[in-house]
Every structure is written in C-alpha cells, then in structure tokens.
C-alpha cells in the first residue's frame, strides 16, 4: 500500500526505460526522517518523511535527484496539467511548436511523465559552459531542454509528415490505437517504445550468466496433488513424521 503511495507520482512511461523494480525506485528516493518505534503505539507505523519531491530531468533513483531534494529543502510547488491518456512514446516523430526549433521534427528520446515532459533528440537545445576559469575558456556542452506535451509538441501524421492533433480510438479487433484527427490515419506506436537500458526489444535480450533460460521458466513441472508444500518436500526427501503434536491453544 505504501509502495503505491510514493510510486503513484512517478509515471509508468518515465520508469519503463530504466527497467528497475518499483521496490528499488521507492527505496532509492524515499526520505524517512523518523519512524514510530515498534511495540504498542496508539498510531503504529507512523513515519515522518518527505511527501513532495521536485521532479526534473534527473531520474528519482539517481544521486542528482537526491541532491536536488536534499532533506529539508523546500521548493516552489509545480502545477502539472492532468492528462487522461499519455500519447507520447519513445521513438515517436514529433514536431516542435515553440522556441528556436519551431516547426522542426524530431524523435522523442526520453519521457518525464511526472512533469508532462518529453525530450526531443537534438531539438530545443541550450549550451552550457563547464569548467571555465581564468586560464581555461571552458567546454561547451549541448543538451536538450524538455518540452511540454500539452502545447509545445505535436505528433506527426505518417501519411503526410505534418503535425496533427490525435485521439485514442478502438479498432474492430478491440485494440486501442492513436488516430490522427486530421486524416483519420492510425499512428502506430514505434518499436522503440519497448526499449530499455537492458535490451532493444524483448526478443533480442541477451541472457546474463545468472538468468534462468526462457524455456526453463515456462516448463510446467507442477502436478496438483492433495498435499501441502511441506508434505510434498518431506516425501521427496524421505522424511517420515509419525509423532503426534500435543494439543495447543491459539489466542
């Protein structure tokens, strides 16, 4: 229950790419300052912890995120527009509607759902000078700034490569698809939406030394029998138990 509380603020699509278990994300970002000691308490499991975080392009499980959300640091509240269905995925071709790259098209590189942001590869960039001092002019680093999905980018219709508003509709097979409102053409979700840091697609995943092989995972070795787990293990190990436990009381 508490796992969902902290994770409900992190969007599904912004953590999919990292391929990390939710448990770890929670453990990495959580800041508990005080916990109720165990024992008889009038309010058990009470915690004093950070409730609001500032989400930026730094991912919640990184050290940079922790640095930005140091204990005790309070930042101005950010208002994020509620969205019904998330419609932007990794690898989508989008058109930038604002800024110096207005009208240009690019591909979505990263999704930051908790701020309604996407990062478009090579567009809406800014330059930062790093390591400048008296003797050294510094190094210029180019990096993309995030764009709001609500009014700063638009999906591109694959039939005429022009930006279009979209809506979610169902096909006759019952599949939910994005449809261009202008031409009625389906905008397919790109294959790279499935990509994570560990694999490009599930089929091309490279097995690691400690992984169980896929065939072994799906092999059925269970056959139902009227016995408990303990009974079946005792039988397979040849342990015989004929002692009768004395009467006990539960209260």
């Amino acid at each position: 229950m508490r796992l969902t509380q902290i994770l409900s603020v992190i969007g599904k699509y912004s953590k999919d790419y990292s391929n990390l278990p939710d448990r770890y994300i929670k453990r990495a970002m959580e800041q508990v300052y005080w916990k109720n000691p165990t024992g008889v308490q009038y309010r058990p499991d009470t915690e004093i912890k950070r409730k609001t975080y500032r989400f930026t392009t730094n991912r919640p499980w990184t050290a940079q995120f922790r640095q930005q959300n140091l204990p005790g640091r309070r930042t101005k509240k950010v208002f994020v527009e509620p969205i019904k269905d998330w419609s932007y995925f990794r690898g989508d071709r989008v058109e930038v509607l604002v800024g110096r790259d207005k009208g240009k098209q690019g591909f979505v590189k990263q999704i930051i759902q908790e701020r309604n942001w996407v990062i478009v590869e090579g567009l809406n960039c800014h330059y930062r000078v790093v390591g400048r001092d008296q003797n050294y002019p510094g190094m210029v680093i180019k990096s993309e700034a995030p764009l709001l999905v609500t009014n700063q980018v638009a999906l591109v219709d694959p039939s005429d490569f022009k930006s279009t508003p979209i809506e979610w509709r169902f096909t006759e097979d019952g599949q939910k698809v994005r449809v261009s409102s202008r031409t009625g053409r389906i905008i397919p979700i790109p294959a790279s939406a499935e990509e994570t840091v560990d694999y490009k697609s599930k089929k091309t995943y490279n097995e690691q030394p400690k992984d169980t092989l896929a065939d072994d995972v799906i092999a059925i070795t269970f056959s139902p029998k009227l016995e408990t787990f303990e009974m079946s293990i005792m039988e397979s190990m040849g342990i015989k138990e004929d002692r009768v436990p004395p009467k006990s009381y539960w209260y």
Binding site: N19, P21, Y205, E207, Q208, K210, D211, T212, V217, I218, A219, I220, T221, F222, S223, F229, S232, I233, S236
Partner: peptide, 14 residues
C-alpha cells in the same frame, strides 16, 4: 534479468 513472477512460479513443482 528480472525477478520471478507469481504466474511463472505457479508452474513449478514443490
């Protein structure tokens, strides 16, 4: 890899 899922473990003998 990822962790074992409940539905995969249900296929396995005791």
């Amino acid at each position: 890899g990822r962790s074992w899922k409940v539905e995969e473990l249900r296929l396995k003998s005791n």
